[in-house]
Amino acid sequence: MARRTRPDPISDSPESTAKDPNPAAAGLMASEDEDTLIGRTVTINRPARELYEFWRDLRNLPLFMENIESITVIDARRSHWKVKGPADSSVEWDSLITEDIPGELIAWESAEGTSVPNSGRIEFRASDNGRGTVVTATIAYDPPAGALGKMFAKMFQREPKIQARRDLRRFKQLMETGEISTSAPVEVFP
């Protein structure tokens, strides 16, 4: 999709809040077609180092990311992601850590050839007013086309923003309270 040209931004807010956000301007190494950008910031009342370390152990992510079936760590940079799809299907891809600054930042990019190209970054910044750590997730992705696209529209087109928001909320709950809040009723067995 060709991007409209626009004047240089003068706002101090993050790129993800722009009316027409541009992944490249958000500093993501997004490929040509990754043209949808979402961002979300939460403040977590824990030290940046602790949050970074929990996240950096990618095996922890399925604890709070609802759609993830499994993450297999291949080596220091490479991991394999399996994500739930509708009707018992799933989609898989390899993900590559492209930048890793302990205590501060992790950036990743999907390996070439995946059906859902995506890249992202999670940043951990000690708040300058004593409120813990400001955590910002920024994700660029390409809404898939065709049949697969249709199948994944629910997850990757309409809902990623909601999904990211909920995942981050669960991450915050887990880090601040040690558990993930639930009101799940007791199942009634017939």
Binding site: T43, N45, R131, G132, R165, R166, D167, R169, R170, K172, Q173, E176, T177, I180, S181, T182, S183
Partner: peptide, 19 residues
Amino acid sequence: GCFFCKKQQFAACDNSNPA
């Protein structure tokens, strides 16, 4: 444990409502 609870604004707790 959240910012609001630490301020004793318990009715504004950030974490008790499921995602």
